[in-house]
């Protein structure tokens, strides 16, 4: 039994040598950590012991470790980014788990996100969708006066909420259909809500949806699993907005 300041967990981790390998779960027992240690730090601790033993460390994505970069992933105990809602894996602490608990860690599962190694998946599909239209084309020049284009507070706030999507892919991971609609709709909405983005709105939504379909993501069946698991709590009202934008754009053709 661990002391008050420490805890031991068993980590059942998906190990896969490369994208073509079969892969399997490997159980690492009695990994010593503390309740105030983050989940990624616990993986770091485990990796140190593996390196000391001359074994391959577990490969997983991470970067800022403060919930803003969208790099960390991991499907932990049946939830993308773990059981906590509105938080990324790097914001997940071991106090969420029980002492002695066996924690299952898997990579995102999606045909569009192939496993590179162990828990690291290739999320380049999201970059491709962004490149298809997730931007505003401006001719550079002097910055406009702040109030030259009036925008209502409601629209500005909603556009900001949509723009908080960090593109981590938890929506795809959570959706039983592997749909990327929440991500794409957030990116479409953050522009569609602002006058600067309206100029290319029709072209944008058609291009981004076409790229999403081409890359093999599933269809949205409105289960709301994406919204429930999104670390940035992106609303499915964005999906309704994108549907509206797309249908109107197609009727204009």
């Amino acid at each position: 039994m661990a002391t008050d300041n420490t805890m031991k967990v068993n980590l059942k981790v998906w190990r896969q040598a490369d994208s073509k390998a079969k892969g399997e779960f490997k159980l690492y027992e009695n990994v010593e950590t503390t309740p105030d240690t983050s989940f990624l730090e616990t993986l770091d601790i485990l990796n140190e012991t593996l390196v000391e033993k001359g074994e391959e460390p577990i490969v997983f994505d991470h970067d800022c470790r403060e919930g803003i970069c969208g790099m960390c992933s991991l499907f932990i105990n049946g939830h993308p980014h773990g059981p906590a809602q509105g938080a990324t894996t790097c914001q997940l602490y071991m106090r969420r788990f029980k002492d002695g608990e066996t924690i299952t860690v898997e990579p995102w599962r999606s045909a569009a996100f192939p496993v590179i190694k162990d828990l690291m998946v290739n999320r380049n599909a999201f970059d491709q969708i962004q490149q298809a239209g997730g931007y505003v084309s401006f001719n550079c020049g002097g910055a406009q006066d702040a109030n030259a284009i009036p925008i209502s507070k409601v629209d500005a706030d909603e556009a900001m909420d949509s723009a908080t999507c960090i593109g981590c892919g938890a929506c795809v991971a959570a959706c039983k259909n592997g749909s990327a609609m929440l991500f794409v709709s957030a990116k479409v909405s953050q522009f569609a809500l602002l006058p600067q983005g309206r100029v290319e709105a029709v072209k944008r939504v058609k291009s981004m949806v076409a790229k999403m379909d081409e890359l093999g993501f599933g269809n949205c069946t409105n289960t709301r699993a994406c919204e429930a698991e999104c670390p940035k709590c992106i609303s499915i009202s964005n999906i309704a907005r994108m549907n509206r934008e797309f249908i109107c754009a197609k009727f204009k053709d």
């Binding site: 599962r109 045909a111 039983k176 259909n177 592997g178 599933g218 709301r224």
Partner: peptide, 17 residues
Amino acid sequence: NYKARPIGYSTQKNQKE
């Protein structure tokens, strides 16, 4: 949808929503 996730999860739980 099936083709979009050829390999499923060993454990998947849903939030109450």
